[in-house]
Each structure stands twice: as C-alpha cells, then as structure tokens.
Amino acid sequence: MVHTSAAGAASAASALRLRAPVNLVSRRALWYWTARAAIVWVLAVAVEVFALIELAGDRAPMVAVVAVTVLLAAAHLIVMPQWRFRVHRWEVSDTAVYTQSGWFTQERRIAPLSRIQTVDTERGPLEQLFRLSNVTVTTASAAGPLRIHGLDRVTADHLTAELTAATSARNDDAT
C-alpha cells in the first residue's frame, strides 16, 4: 500500500531533479566577461613592460615573458567568454530555481521555491556599463546562495519580481 505522503514526496523529488537549466544569460555578458578579464591582463602586461623598461642587462628573458603573457591573454580573452556563455544557464519552474555556472569547475544547483528566503539584484559599475545585472537567490541551504550572473536588466528585474511573488505566495517559512 502506498501512502499519499510518500507518493507526494516521490513526485516532488522527480519534479526537482538536477538538470541543465534552459535559459542562457544575456549575449552582452560575453563582452562584459571579456572587458573584465582584459582589465586584469592589461595591468599584468603593463607591470611586465614597466619591469622590462627598468631592467638593466639582458632583456631577452623579460621580452619572452611579456610575449607569453600576451599570448595567454589573447587565448583567455577569446576562449573564456564563449565557454562561460555556453555553460551559464538558469531557469525558474513552478517549483524551483535552477542554475548552472562555472568555467573550469562547473556547478549545477537547484533551490525549491519553498526554501528561498531573499532575492537580490546587484549591478556593479562595469555591469552597469554593459546594462547587466546579477540575481542572488538566498536559501536556507548551507551551500550558500544561488547566483545568476550576466542577465540583462529587464530580465533580472522581471525574475526578481517573479521569484518574490512566487515565494511570498507560499505559506511555509523557508527554513
């Protein structure tokens, strides 16, 4: 004999299975990730060029270091944004929020709507320049919040409103 609560739990578990979310982030995230990484690479090359100028003696090793840095920077700036864009995904269903993120280490997370405590939107200066936003979904999980980076502002604002409405409509306390 199957109890109703056990069947309901099995149904909820199957509805909340860990899977790849369907929504991609904004295409502007490609340019944002490229610009953010380029700032770091430009600073690194600038320090190396300064050291090269100030270096007395044989400069050949330092020239090689600068050349390798430029090649690594170019490879990183070409590959990383495309890779991240293909990996970063998100989705909201009637029962949960799904996220997938990462670069080398990739992570998929799911948070049932009943566990959501807060929903926040954040826009840093560089993100504002690219008209992007981040949404942070804080849950009662020890694993920490779910973060969705690289959303366009309209999508982020809509998502925040949707999650706020969905979680406030629930009677449980998200703990």
Rank of each mutant, 00 (worst) to 15 (best):
R27V: 14
W31H: 10
S26Y: 02
G8E: 14
T4Q: 13
G8A: 12
A13C: 10
T34D: 02
A9Y: 04
L24V: 04
L16R: 12
L18K: 07
A12T: 06
A6K: 02
W31V: 00
R17M: 11
A29Y: 15
L16S: 10
V25D: 00
S26E: 10
L24I: 00
L30P: 07
S14K: 10
A10Y: 01
L18P: 04
G8N: 14
S5Y: 14
W31K: 01
A6H: 00
A35F: 15
R27F: 05
S5T: 14
R19W: 02
A10W: 13
R17H: 09
S11A: 14
R17G: 10
G8L: 15
A7N: 07
A35C: 05
L24E: 06
N23S: 07
R27A: 00
S26L: 03
T34W: 15
R17Q: 06
A9P: 02
A7W: 11
L30D: 00
R19N: 06
T34G: 03
R17I: 09
V22S: 14
A13S: 09
S11T: 07
L30V: 08
A35R: 08
Y32P: 01
A7L: 15
A15I: 10
A7D: 04
A20F: 05
N23C: 10
W33T: 04
L30G: 05
R19S: 12
S14W: 05
A12K: 03
G8C: 03
A12M: 03
S11W: 15
A12W: 13
A12R: 07
S5H: 13
R17F: 11
R17W: 08
S5C: 04
A6F: 00
A6P: 03
A13T: 07
L30F: 01
A12S: 09
A15V: 03
P21Q: 02
N23Y: 02
G8M: 09
N23R: 09
L18F: 02
V22L: 14
V25F: 00
S5I: 11
V22W: 00
A29E: 08
R28E: 05
R28N: 06
R17E: 09
L18T: 11
S5G: 02
A35G: 07
A7H: 10
S14D: 07
A9V: 08
Y32T: 05
W31S: 06
A13V: 02
R28L: 12
L24P: 09
V25Q: 03
A20E: 15
T4G: 04
R27E: 01
T34I: 04
A7E: 10
R27S: 06
A35I: 09
V25M: 00
A15W: 01
L30E: 01
R28T: 04
L18D: 01
L16I: 00
S11E: 12
T34P: 00
P21D: 08
R27T: 13
S11I: 12
L30M: 04
L18M: 14
